[in-house]
Amino acid sequence: MKIAVTATAADFDAPMDLRFGRAACFLVVDTETMSWSVVENTQNLNAAQGAGIQAGKTIVETGCTAIITGNCGPKAFRILTGAGIKIVTGAKGSARQAVEQYKAGELQESSEANVEGHWI
């Protein structure tokens, strides 16, 4: 199974990034082999508006079935859930630890956006 996690650097052992739309980068992880690859989020860091939407689009295009992150706004939430992607929150530590927590069933799937949207 392929899942994504927001990370503060392009490294599986880097701390998780609690931001979704403005996350430093996304790591796409194969949960069986724990092999990972990086998906950049650079454009979004500078976008004036719609970072969450664009990040949502990026994640949908990776073909992941779940995303582990901290805070997800309503627009990104709409896109992710619309594509059937689970939004998983409550993880702590590094990106690797977050994925391990997910595999161990320690994390919650969120059923609604947990932060206000940014407008402009």
Binding site: Q49, G50, I53, Q54, K57, K75, G82
Partner: peptide
Amino acid sequence: HFSAITLVADELYLFPNM
């Protein structure tokens, strides 16, 4: 430029307030 209309995996999303 404002992501107010976004195509994601063959699904068109509209965000009128953007």
